[in-house]
């Protein structure tokens, strides 16, 4: 399978990764070689499997847990006003 430049740009945008033209040139070849290699798995006949096992990760109770050391979390904010996280304008 070939990944084209337009597709790479779209994927990078979705992943919020900014790529330079040089990085794009290198990545497009590398991703293509990795994709060609991992495509091997499509040869495997998986028709006997009816579904992907869903029990791999058991679900925990959907209830909030208070984190004791919240002061350390706030201290790590790169920009803040009092104990609130300050971010750049959204629009």
């Amino acid at each position: 399978m070939e990944t084209n430049l337009q597709e790479l740009k779209q994927i990078a945008k979705l992943a919020k990764i900014e790529l330079s033209a040089q990085e794009e040139e290198k990545l497009i070849k590398q991703i293509a070689s990795v994709v060609n290699w991992v495509e091997e798995i499509q040869k495997v006949n998986t028709s006997a499997l009816t579904c992907v096992p869903a029990d791999f990760t058991p679900k925990r109770a959907d209830s909030p847990v208070h984190f004791e050391n919240d002061a350390a979390l706030v201290a790590a904010f790169n920009d803040k006003r009092d104990s609130l996280l300050k971010v750049k304008k959204v629009l």
Partner: peptide
């Protein structure tokens, strides 16, 4: 300049292998 630009610029801190795997995973 804005929040979107913040994400892009901050995430430029990832090295080449990490970027490669994030791109492959998103693909």
């Amino acid at each position: 300049k804005d929040l979107e630009d913040t994400y892009l610029k901050n995430r430029s801190a990832f090295g080449p292998e990490v970027k490669r795997r994030i791109i492959l995973g998103t693909f």
